[in-house]
Design a protein around this nucleic acid. Structure first.
Ligand SMILES: NC(=O)c1ccc[n+]([C@@H]2O[C@H](COP(=O)([O-])OP(=O)(O)OC[C@H]3O[C@@H](n4cnc5c(N)ncnc54)[C@H](O)[C@@H]3O)[C@@H](O)[C@H]2O)c1
Ligand SMILES: NC(=O)c1ccc[n+]([C@@H]2O[C@H](COP(=O)([O-])OP(=O)(O)OC[C@H]3O[C@@H](n4cnc5c(N)ncnc54)[C@H](O)[C@@H]3O)[C@@H](O)[C@H]2O)c1
Lengths: 210, 210
DNA sequence: AATAAGTCGTGATATATTTCACAATATTAT
DNA sequence: ATAATATTGTGAAATATATCACGACTTATT
C-alpha cells in the first residue's frame, strides 16, 4: 500500500473516534485546530496525517465531518468485522471480556480460552470460554489474539498460536515473546508504562504533555 | 538532569526488569546481543541507550549484570517508593488492584476511590476503597493517579486531581483530558491499540515486529 | 464587489530516533 | 605469547517524525 507513516497509522483510530463523537453531536464541519484541541495532537500534524490520504479538506473551511468519517470508515475497514480470541480469563482478561471492544467499532472478542476448569464453559460478557486444550479446534479462522495469561505461559501459548496461523498478537504479559517475522506483536506493558511515567515526573519536571 | 532521550527513558524499566531476571538466574555477565534477543530491541540501540549514562560495559566482555542492575536501581529510583491512587474501581480498576504493581518494583497503589456505595469501605488486594467525595481529604501527598472511570467523568475528576496537586496521570479512559502544562498525562487507550494492530495487519503485511 | 478572516496543503526545516560500521579493547584458546 | 574471537562505545549516516510558515483558496462581512 501507500506509505502511511506508522506514527500516523497509530493516530487514525483516535481521529476516527473523535470524528464519530462530533458526528453524533450533529457537528457538520471541523477545523484541524478544533480537532487538535480535542485529541491533543498539533494541528499541523493532523493536517499532515490527513494529507497522506489526499486533499480531504477545503481551504478556508475545514473538513466536512460526515465526509471525513466516511473516508476513515473505509480506510480503517470499519465495515469488515475482525474476530479476536482472548487467552487467559483472569483479572485482566475478565475486564476485557466485560468491556468488549465491540461497543463502537469493528473488533469483537469472539471466544476466550483458559486452563482453569471452573472458568471453562462459562460465558462472560457474551463470550464463551473454552478450555485451552481446544484452542486448535475452536480457533480456526481467527487471526488476532489478546494474551492475558501469566508470563511463564506466554512462550508456550505463543508457539501454539503461531502454529495455528495467527497473524497478530496484543501481548499484555511482561514476557517479550518470540515470533516469526511475518507475525506482528504489540506489547502493552502496564507496569512499564507506570514506571516510565514516574521516571518522567522525577527527571523531566514541567515538560509538556505527551 | 542530562539529556536522556524520551525513547530511551521508556525502555529503561524494561531493561531493569530483564536484568533483574538475569540476576535471579545467577547470570554474571550479559552482552547487548543477548539482551537484544530477550527484550527485542536492536543491540546497537541498547548500547546507545546505556551510553547516555556513561561507559557501563567493558569492550570484548559485555556488561556485569549486578553492576548494571545496581546502576539502574539508583537511576530509576527503585529505592524510593512512589504512592499512587486509583480512581474508579470497576472492571479494569479492580484488575489493577488485584495485580498491584508492587510485586517487583517501587510503585504501589495506596488507595482507591469510587462513587458506588457498595464498593466504598471494601479492601481489594490490600488497598482500601474510599468514596470519591473524600478524595481531597484522603489523597494528600499522593502525586500520581490512575484513571479507570467512565470517559464522561474524566474531565471533572481530572480537575479535582489537578486542584489537589497531582503531577502525573495514567489515563485509561478514551477521553483526552486537558491539564495545565506542568502536569504529565500518559494515555493508554486499549481500544485504539487493538484497532491500530488490526490496521497494521491489513496494511503492512509481513513487516517486522514493533 | 471588495475586504477581512479563516483554514488547508505542503515545501522546507527542525528535531528525534535508529542503525551502520569500525577502532579499541578484553577474553579465550592454543 | 600469539592469534582468534567477542563485544563495547560512538561518529556518521539513515530514517522517522513533528513543526513552521506561507501561498492559495473559501467563506463571511460590509
Ligand atoms: N492484572 C493487571 O492489572 C495486570 C497488569 C499488568 C500486567 N498484567 C499481566 O497480564 C497477565 C494476566 O494478568 P492477570 O492479573 O489477569 O492474571 P491472572 O492470574 O488473574 O489470570 C491469568 C489467567 O490465565 C489462566 N491461565 C494460566 N495458564 C494458562 C494457560 N496455559 N492457558 C490458558 N490460560 C491459562 C489462569 O487460569 C488465569 O485465569 C499477566 O501476565 C500479568 O503479568 C496484569
Ligand atoms: N474494561 C476494559 O477492558 C476497558 C478497555 C478499554 C478502556 N476502558 C476504559 O476504562 C475505563 C473504565 O472501564 P471499566 O470497564 O473498568 O468500567 P466500569 O464501568 O466497570 O468501571 C467504572 C467505575 O468507575 C466508578 N465511577 C463512576 N463515576 C465515578 C466518579 N465520578 N468517581 C469515582 N468513580 C466513579 C463506577 O462506580 C465504576 O466502579 C472506561 O473509561 C473505559 O472506557 C476499559
Amino acid at each position: 500500500m501507500n506509505k502511511i507513516p506508522q506514527a500516523t497509522a497509530k493516530r487514525l483510530p483516535l481521529y476516527y473516534r473523535f470524528l464519530n463523537n462530533l458526528n453524533h453531536q450533529g457537528k457538520k464541519r471541523v477545523s484541524s485546530k478544533e480537532l487538535s484541541e480535542a485529541v491533543k495532537v498539533d494541528s499541523a500534524t493532523i493536517r499532515r496525517d490527513f494529507s497522506y490520504f489526499g486533499a480531504l479538506g477545503k481551504k478556508g473551511y475545514g473538513y466536512n465531518v460526515e465526509y471525513l468519517l466516511g473516508f476513515f470508515r473505509k480506510t480503517l475497514d470499519q465495515d469488515e468485522l475482525t474476530d479476536v480470541a482472548l487467552i487467559g480469563v483472569g483479572n485482566l482478561g475478565t475486564a476485557f471480556l466485560h468491556y468488549n471492544f465491540l461497543k463502537n467499532n469493528n473488533i469483537q472478542i469472539k471466544m476466550a480460552f483458559d486452563a482453569a476448569k471452573e472458568k471453562v464453559g462459562t460465558d462472560i460478557g457474551g463470550v464463551p470460554v473454552y478450555h485451552i486444550e481446544d484452542l486448535e479446534d475452536k480457533m480456526t479462522g481467527i487471526k488476532v489474539a489478546i494474551l492475558t495469561i501469566p508470563a511463564s505461559e506466554a512462550d508456550g501459548i505463543t508457539n501454539r498460536l503461531v502454529e495455528q496461523g495467527i497473524t497478530g498478537i496484543l501481548n499484555f504479559t511482561p514476557a517479550r515473546i518470540t515470533v516469526p517475522d511475518h507475525i506482528r506483536v504489540h506489547h502493552i506493558d502496564l507496569a512499564v508504562e507506570l514506571q516510565a511515567l514516574v521516571y518522567f515526573l522525577k527527571h523531566y519536571p514541567l515538560s509538556k504533555e505527551d
